[in-house]
């Protein structure tokens, strides 16, 4: 699509508003990052010291060398990736069924997936703990991944269904006339077109799982402790380790942001790049 606006118009209608939004999004994060490289004396100073007297990497050293944070990052990454893969692989066929088939109980089943999402997690967590204990999944990756699938799967099904609904049905039918099976239609026709939606949903699951605390706190022990639980260890009864906490916060946001930087090109594929025309 052509943009016929003048550079000045683009400045006021695109660059400036977006800059304001980016600054709003970034502000608290930058503040956190600044704090993480200040000494403990500068951190609590009033008036606020925007430019610290000395920069230090002591908090990062302490975080990575004297706490288990590095290992926790790996655990979180495994869990978030696992939740993402499990979530997407069971949700994609389900969404296809909801989008392309009309069958008995369809609406009831769709609603059922929403209802699962509606129950406050805090109250099912103790029964869930007992359940996981009984089937021996406490303090395992699988246990937490299953826990996270309670919000990942319903969400993915609904989002993927709505992305799929946006794809014209003529596409599948044309392929079927050419003799493609259902699985081939899903793999060769739907999958490429739905990629932006799939990526977005995957990111959603990853991010939510990455940031989840309650399941991780209850269902994990020493073996599979995640970053969110490790963070909580910096907030003690009588002291908050601000340096460690902000250093950890700065690091925690990085994998997700980098991941997004890598996959965001995928967001521009799909229909606009010509799937319909071919």
């Amino acid at each position: 699509m052509m943009d016929r606006r003048s550079p000045l118009q683009r400045l006021f209608e695109l660059h400036l508003p977006l800059l304001v939004i980016v600054l709003f999004a970034l502000g608290p994060y930058v503040w956190m990052m600044m704090t993480s490289i200040k000494t403990n004396t500068d951190i609590g100073a009033w008036p606020v010291r925007y430019w610290p007297q000395a920069f230090t990497s002591e908090h990062y050293h302490a975080l990575l060398e004297r706490t288990s944070f590095g290992g926790n990052l790996v655990n979180s990454f495994i869990i978030a990736t696992g939740a993402c893969m499990l979530g997407l692989s069971v949700s994609l066929p389900a969404a296809y069924a909801f989008s392309r088939y009309r069958f008995r109980g369809r609406r009831l089943l769709m609603t059922q997936f929403l209802v699962i999402n509606m129950f406050p997690i805090v109250l099912i967590i103790i029964p869930l703990f007992v359940l996981m204990r009984n089937i021996g999944l406490l303090d395992t990756f699988i246990g937490i991944i299953l826990g996270h699938s309670t919000f990942a799967v319903p969400f993915s099904i609904w989002m993927l269904t709505s992305y799929m609904n946006a794809i014209p049905k003529d596409l599948d039918e044309a392929a079927r006339i050419d003799g493609a099976t259902t699985l081939e239609v899903l793999r060769l026709i739907i999958l490429p077109v739905i990629m932006p939606g799939l990526v977005t949903t995957g990111i959603y699951i990853f991010v939510t799982s990455w940031n989840e605390y309650l399941f991780a706190m209850m269902l994990s022990g020493q073996n599979v402790r995640t970053v969110t639980v490790a963070l909580q260890l910096f907030i003690g009864e009588f002291s908050v380790q601000w340096g460690l906490l902000t250093a950890a916060g700065t690091l925690i946001a990085l994998p997700v942001t980098l991941l997004f930087l890598l996959v965001q090109k995928r967001l521009v594929s799909g229909l606009t790049s010509g799937a319909v025309k071919s």
């Binding site: 977006l18 994060y29 925690i252 942001t257």
Partner: peptide, 27 residues
Amino acid sequence: QSFWWRSLARSLVIIPWALPSVIIGLT
């Protein structure tokens, strides 16, 4: 829209969402 710093902007905007609630609350 298309502009030169689009991929950067897209990645930066996602940062608030990439942080755990505990950190957000405390910060």
